[in-house]
């Protein structure tokens, strides 16, 4: 696409080009699913290797998994609170791992070497469908968390501390998924674009620091998404006194 006002002879920059798959009369973004399966496969492989023979004195991959588990537990516990964090830890952890591995996979794996008929492989989180799906899951889960834990008393949250808050809280229910999805999508896509544009202009050396910055951003975005998801769930299950 004519993304830049000038044309360069090598490497093209593609945004909004997808490898379409058809499933009945549904359209899918094939490249997103391909990379997401690779990401899921990598996570599952790591988990299966690490949990195959667990011992009290951890060794090898078990150390890494325990570190991750501990990290996710701390994250969930500080945001959701002691009472409810156990129920939501797998969800928060899955979000974190999926987004983190997606982002890093998008930056670290040289996807460009694989040519697709249309579109290109990249981080699944650079596709708005993925991030909106994740954000909507977060919305559903915090509603579910609040309603299942407190029943209709969950809606006290909307009038807390005063009924004046109702419109703001209702707007929040829409802005939460919106900001979650756009933050992730925007950061990852922007990172890929910046690297691509720099590679485009100065193919050697200059993109490297930006790539490191991209790795940093990717990790931070995964952490932010998981932390905010946990925070929203924590907010929903919190008891008001």
């Amino acid at each position: 696409m004519g993304f830049l006002p000038f044309a360069l002879p090598f490497a093209e920059l593609e945004v909004g080009q997808h490898l379409y798959w058809r499933l009945g009369n549904l359209q899918l973004h094939g490249q997103v699913f391909m990379t997401s399966w690779i990401v899921i496969g990598a996570i599952l492989a790591l988990v299966v290797v690490g949990t195959r023979k667990m011992e009290r004195d951890p060794r090898g991959v078990q150390n890494l998994l325990e570190f991750l588990w501990d990290y996710i537990r701390d994250l969930a516990r500080t945001q959701i609170g002691e009472k409810a964090y156990r129920d939501w830890m797998p969800f928060i952890g899955t979000l974190f791992l999926f987004i983190f591995v997606s982002n890093w996979g998008g930056s670290l794996v040289p996807w460009k070497l694989i040519h697709l008929p249309s579109g290109e492989l990249g981080a699944p989180t650079a596709d708005i469908n993925t991030t909106v799906a994740l954000a909507l899951l977060v919305s559903l889960s915090y509603f579910y968390a609040g309603l299942s834990r407190k029943g209709l008393r969950y809606f006290e949250y909307y009038v807390h501390p005063t009924p004046i808050m109702i419109p703001f809280k209702i707007v929040e229910d829409f802005t939460k998924p919106l900001s979650l999805s756009f933050r992730l999508f925007g950061n990852i896509l922007a990172d890929e674009l910046v690297v691509a544009v720099l590679v485009f202009l100065v193919p050697l050396f200059l993109p490297v620091p930006v790539m490191f910055l991209g790795l940093f951003t990717s990790a931070i975005q995964a952490l932010i998404f998981a932390t905010l998801a946990a925070y929203y769930i924590g907010e929903a299950v919190e008891e008001h006194h």
């Binding site: 997103v32 699913f33 799906a133």
Partner: peptide, 26 residues
């Protein structure tokens, strides 16, 4: 912002991953 069936399927995929990871990892 090309929304299509990728969105619900991705959501489903992540939910399944959550259950699988819960059983295999967490």
């Amino acid at each position: 912002f090309d929304f299509d069936a990728t969105l619900p399927l991705m959501a489903l995929q992540v939910v399944l991953l959550t259950f699988v990871l819960n059983a295999l990892f967490f």
